[in-house]
Computed example of a mutant assay.
Amino acid sequence: MAGLGAGPATTDAPPRTPRPSRPLRFAALGDSLTEGVGDRVDGAWRGWAALLAQGLGEPARPAEFRNLAVSGALTRDVHEDQTPEALAYAPDIASVVVGVNDTLRHTFDIHDLAFRLDKVCGALSEQGTRILTACLPDPGTMLALPVPLARPLARRQRAVNAVVHALSARYGAVHLHIADATWVEDRTMWSADRLHPGERGHRMIARRFHELLAAEGLVLGTAPGAEPEQPAPSRAAKALWLATAGTAWVARRCTDLLPQLVGLAGAEVRHWARGTSARLDHVAENALSSALASLSLDAPLARMGE
Rank of each mutant, 00 (worst) to 15 (best):
G7V: 02
A9E: 14
T10C: 03
A13S: 10
R16S: 12
R19Y: 09
P23L: 01
L24K: 01
R25K: 07
F26V: 01
A27Q: 02
A27N: 01
A28K: 11
S32W: 09
R40Q: 12
G43T: 08
A44I: 02
R46D: 06
A49N: 06
A49Y: 10
L51K: 04
L52Y: 11
G57P: 11
G57W: 10
A60L: 00
T75P: 01
A86P: 00
Y89A: 04
Y89V: 00
S95F: 08
V96Y: 06
V98H: 03
D102E: 11
F108H: 08
D109G: 00
H111L: 01
H111F: 05
L113W: 02
F115A: 08
F115L: 02
K119W: 05
C121D: 11
L124S: 05
E126R: 05
G128W: 07
I131V: 13
T133C: 09
T133W: 05
T133D: 10
L136W: 06
D138R: 00
P139H: 15
T141C: 02
L143F: 12
P148D: 15
L149R: 08
A150I: 08
R151T: 10
P152W: 11
P152D: 11
A154S: 12
R156I: 06
A159Q: 15
V160E: 15
N161C: 09
A162G: 07
V163C: 07
H165V: 13
A166L: 01
S168M: 05
R170L: 10
H175M: 09
H177Q: 15
I178V: 13
D180N: 06
A181F: 04
T182L: 06
W183H: 14
V184F: 08
W190G: 06
W190R: 03
A192W: 09
E199I: 03
R203F: 12
A206I: 10
L212T: 05
L212P: 04
L213G: 01
A214V: 04
A215C: 02
V219A: 03
A226I: 04
P228I: 11
E229Q: 14
E229C: 04
Q230E: 14
A232E: 13
R235P: 13
A236S: 09
A237P: 08
W241C: 01
L242P: 05
T244W: 10
A245V: 15
T247Q: 13
V250K: 14
R253D: 12
R253P: 08
C254V: 15
L258S: 12
P259C: 11
G263E: 12
A267V: 13
A267Y: 12
R274E: 15
T276K: 06
S277D: 14
A278D: 15
L288T: 07
S290V: 05
L292T: 13
D298E: 15
G305Q: 13
E306R: 01
